[in-house]
Design a protein around this nucleic acid. Structure first.
Lengths: 157, 157
DNA sequence: ACTATAATTAGTAATAGTTACGATATAAGC
DNA sequence: GCTTATATCGTAACTATTACTAATTATAGT
């Protein structure tokens, strides 16, 4: 089953409609799966295919997608909320590498935390339903070359 | 060496002055070490000892403390920045447990991520300087008793 | 100590991201 | 087709944060 179908099913299953606006927004997210788009960025991108769309609708839709656990709303400290598509099963969040030099934000899609979650359960009596793991630092290649001006690198602040 | 002295030294070492205003703010942070106060909360608390202090000064001071790596600016998704005192050596951030039921935010002060940081270095050529690890879920005791109304629990959203 | 210079603060105005709201449009149920 | 609920649009309102100016305090040199 392709991603858009799966999301469509989730909408209808929960009595929400997958309107053209919502579909256009979801499509933007799928097309930019590797980015962590802000509302404003989604708004700009979706205008290409759906020029008439209102900003408030983007806010509402992303909020809804977040409630449905299709995306995760995150804040990386640059003052805007960013949205990250979750995995197919919508289970756990990715881990992130955030480079101080070039600002690049890379995802680690493995789940490295199963052991630690067991430990939290054991030692703290706390059942984990989700987690967030970000590493801040620098790519060794960045450190050497100082890629700050590299256009391939997208600043995240 | 007590905490306030240590922080004082850090200020002077970096050519910043520990003004009475800044000292009062630092004191509030030390007195509420376990909380993750917002700017507004710091502002209210510091007014007890320093009634004349301006809000902008709180913003500036917390920003400065963040630059000096004395506190960490974090965002837990409730729309306000929160500040968390780092450990004495100002090395790494704590891990957090965030309970869906009661909203409590607990700190794990151990560093559980040394192994994973080595793995990031090895597999991604990425040198980690800091990390952030939050677990979201529920305390088993919360689940049973539904402590949502327990006044001891402080909501974080 | 006195003056010049820099750093800091207070108070408030301005900005930016987000949310709320009334009116309109679209879809669903009967 | 008519009624009711749902979603959207555009904008106003709100809130957290930043920017700015004047006033204050500290620092350094003479």
């Amino acid at each position: 089953m392709n991603p858009i179908e799966q999301i469509s099913q989730q909408f209808t299953a929960q009595k929400y409609k997958l309107t053209p606006q919502r579909a256009a927004i979801v499509k933007v997210l799928l097309d930019n799966e590797k980015d962590h788009l802000s509302v404003e960025e989604v708004y700009m991108l979706v205008k290409n295919t759906y020029p008439h769309l209102g900003l408030a609708t983007v806010y509402r839709t992303l909020e809804l997608l977040s409630e449905l656990h299709i995306v995760e709303k995150m804040n990386f400290g640059d003052g805007v909320a960013r949205y990250d598509l979750r995995d197919d099963n919508h289970a756990h969040m990715h881990h992130h590498l955030i480079c101080h030099v070039c600002g690049k934000l890379e995802e680690i899609k493995d789940d490295w935390l199963l052991e630690l979650e067991k430990r939290v359960e054991r030692e703290y009596g706390f059942t984990v339903t989700d987690h967030r793991l970000d590493f801040k630092g620098t790519y060794n290649t960045c450190q050497r070359t100082g890629c700050k001006k590299d256009k391939a690198c997208k600043a995240v602040s």
